[in-house]
Design a protein around this nucleic acid. Structure first.
Length: 115
RNA sequence: UGAGUAAGUCGGACAGUCGCGUGGGUCUUCCCACGAGGAAAGUCCGGGCUCCACAGAGCAAGGGUGCCGGAUAACGUCCGGUGGAGGCGACUCUAAGGAAAGUGCAACAGAAAGCAAACCGCCUGAUUUAUCAGGUAAGGGUGAAACGGCGAGGUAAGAGCUCACCGGCGGUGUGGAGACAUACCGGCCUUGUAAACCCCACCCGGAGCAAGAUCAAGAAGGACCGCAAAAGGCGGCUGCUCGCUGCCGGUCCGUAAGGUAGAUCGCUUGAGCCCUUUGGCAACGAUGGGCCUAGAUAGAUGGCUGUCUGAGACAGAACCCGGCUUACAGACUUGCUCACAUC
RNA sequence: GCCCCAGUAGCUCAGGGGAUAGAGCGUCGGUUUCCUAAACCGUGCGUCGGAUGUUCGAAUCAUCUCUGGGGUG
């Protein structure tokens, strides 16, 4: 079965790119937009600029793992696209997580309870 | 011991914990099992499978292969051999048919680049002593390549003109399954290039799993049947009105079909892997037994902690197999060769 | 996934077995000018993306490889 919390259609992507907000950090770029649902939908992308398939898979796994640990702090009801930059190849997991956290914080996507 | 050569194996491991994909369970979000490669890569060949075309084969075009024999489902792959090249050797490499079917090309240099010729020479004759006529292709020079090589005889000078050896070509015999090898004889002999066109032999229909098959929303669009009836358009019964009626149009219900979004299948059991015995030099084949080993669909292998020779190669399945090619840190095993030392 | 194409000077491109690889723009130097521009003259600029092979000879032919670009569903 297809999971509902994953972005799929081309229309969603172009809407988020054109009408959503974007912000970048050292290792990742985040696009986000309200989706009027009661849950969050996400997508993790690594383009060919990042490297061959091994590097791209590694980048996506690091981003997914980072998001998994931050998931409970994220406010629901948004579509989020997380894109790897080619600097991610030199990064460790902790650095990626830190970068993603700072990006989400600056986009005010996290709940106010945590710092 | 050192150097080398050939073949092969592994490709960080283990434990705990939080997560991911598939399957199963007593499907309560709990438990169990399994979960990338030797190249998964490049997409360079060969097949399976699916649809289309032809349903008879042949010819042509276009493309491919190219020493011989075997292996194989097939191959441009593999194995064994032949010829050639390299290495002291183990061994390695080899697009290796045909140039006497034809066409083209061979720059520059050189007299001459392919079928005959002759620049300087050499020799003979004539004579005006510097040229002319004839003979010759040994020597010089040019070039990547100059019409068999080298030596002897021979001659005016020379020449396969003659002879020995070597190379090549043709014929015959012998060995071999064949490529080919070898012996004898012959005339003395024909440049290179086919990864230039080409000739000969053999092979090839096209597209590709996003192929294709099944199910199938919709306030989507079209077809047909029926029913109801408000308005409208055109026509008929009559010249007009009313009325009746046919068609179009519109609304609703139904039928069958195609089929978009979407879903399911194709999707992993296969020319499969491991072991035993056995035929074969080998590739590989046969017999018997055992095993089930990813199947996602924006696409599953990651994070943290600890231990160990301290960590680090190239790299990620997408329908599936057989090969080729390319990339690859490091570790290990076995056979063989050469050199040195010792016994 | 499948299928194509390209790679030659700093840039845009010729050249498809025999060149010292060529043209335009550009760079640099000079002439002219008080100076600059324009004009004119000159100058260099290249492992022909890489490796191996065929050939007497390769940018050109063959094989492998790298990089870039495009098409298609």
């Amino acid at each position: 079965m297809l999971r509902p919390d994953v972005l799929r259609s081309k229309k969603d992507f172009t809407d988020i790119y054109n009408k959503g907000k974007s912000l970048g950090d050292r290792y990742v770029v985040v696009f986000h937009r309200e989706n009027h649902l009661d849950y969050t939908r996400t997508a993790f992308l690594a383009s060919k600029k990042v490297g061959k398939s091994v590097q791209r898979n590694k980048a996506r796994r690091l981003m997914k793992e980072s998001y998994r640990e931050l998931k409970d702090e994220v406010k629901p009801g948004r579509d989020i696209i997380i894109i790897a930059r080619n600097t991610i190849n030199q990064a460790e997991y902790r650095q990626v997580k830190k970068s993603l956290r700072s990006a989400l914080t600056r986009g005010k996507l996290l709940k106010e309870t945590k710092e």
